[in-house]
Design a protein around this nucleic acid. Sequence first.
DNA 1: AACTTCTTTAAGGTTTCTTTAAGGTTTGCC
DNA 2: GGCAAACCTTAAAGAAACCTTAAAGAAGTT
Lengths: 225, 225
Amino acid sequence: MRILIVEDQGNLAEALAQILKKNNYTVDIANDGETGLDNALSDIYDLIILDIMLPKIDGITILRHLRKEKIVTPIIMLTAKGEISDKVKGLDSGADDYLAKPFATEELLARIRAMTRRKGEIIEDNTLTFDDIQLNTSSLKLTSGEREVKLTLKESEILEILINRRNIATSKEIIIEKLWGFDAEVEHNHVEVYISFLRKKLSFLASRVIINTIRGVGYMLEVKE
Amino acid sequence: MRILIVEDQGNLAEALAQILKKNNYTVDIANDGETGLDNALSDIYDLIILDIMLPKIDGITILRHLRKEKIVTPIIMLTAKGEISDKVKGLDSGADDYLAKPFATEELLARIRAMTRRKGEIIEDNTLTFDDIQLNTSSLKLTSGEREVKLTLKESEILEILINRRNIATSKEIIIEKLWGFDAEVEHNHVEVYISFLRKKLSFLASRVIINTIRGVGYMLEVKE
DNA sequence: AACTTCTTTAAGGTTTCTTTAAGGTTTGCC
DNA sequence: GGCAAACCTTAAAGAAACCTTAAAGAAGTT
């Protein structure tokens, strides 16, 4: 799976590339609109991540050009926070999705997966299990025995991380990076609040699962007694 | 694994180099910004530790230059305590991490490991064993037979050092350096207090393991009888 | 526009860990 | 034995880290 990143901010492009490579994508970077368009025209990519503000040729123009050339590669547009009008322009011009900077790693990966999913592909079962709880990351429902609660998106994301890392403590920094992204100005207290919400819901479910605090290290799921 | 240290304070650079070499890294030192940049441009390093305040060329400039030259080696910036704006500048310019002086050896090593970790690496099992005790350095739980106690972060760090150096006495200075950093103003009594806590917990576990004092030298784990 | 739901902010409280400090004990040496 | 240095232990003060809650703010819906 080959992805092209068209982005002039070197550090952002690199960071992105790093993440994508870790997730087994092949990545190329173009630092300005001109090279970006050239590369994209080769039509060898499965996905293009395209910044709007670019030197030489801007993202919207590239997008229009590509669609005119009948290149239908899925495209995710990157836009600075708040540039809603850009969003509209992007979608109008045939972008498949857009993402505001700064964005959370997990969110980008989720969108890429959604975007590159082939039609007819088997729809996965989105259920994660840990001891007596089951989390459906798609419907955001958490179940234990006969009881069930709805989680919010952030609650579900945090629980998902904790379930996936079951045997290793997860620090607040890791959670913040996954949920809010790189340079997000998010306090530790955010995480604490959500952990508190999750604990309340777990206790409502009367589950044996508890979220254990390891002071100075992080959080970890455990089974009571 | 080859690391470049760019740092003008000779003693700090040497101390760092010592520690890294002990941990099986190959280390080069550059004493000013100019040599540092030259060396870094060779692109043979797996990691660069870069001080911000440097003669000739400062750290931030070096960093920008490297990123411009498409050198993506992970970089850890060193900053004097409290220079938060420097931190921001560093990350903005594409640094991967920063560390305030003075720093604890273990923290530096942990960050280096995190930074140089290859993708897809198996999540480690965080358990250290010595005779009849097992220490989980992630959950901070110490187990022996059926019994289990929770350790605090510092207790766990000290025990980890003792287990890793099982056949060699560990001085208070070494422990202080690893837990609090180089020039930390920490008394020997701190270590004594924690050793005392650990002994109490070991005895609660009814383990055969004891912490032996070697007067004038340090501490060492041993098995009773 | 009113409503609902989710997310963020903020404050105060609680718990736990770390540090301090002081008095006691052991050890080696003269 | 007497002394000093090194070490041990403990309680309590101090400092962090964490928890919880309520309410404000944002976003999306009807």
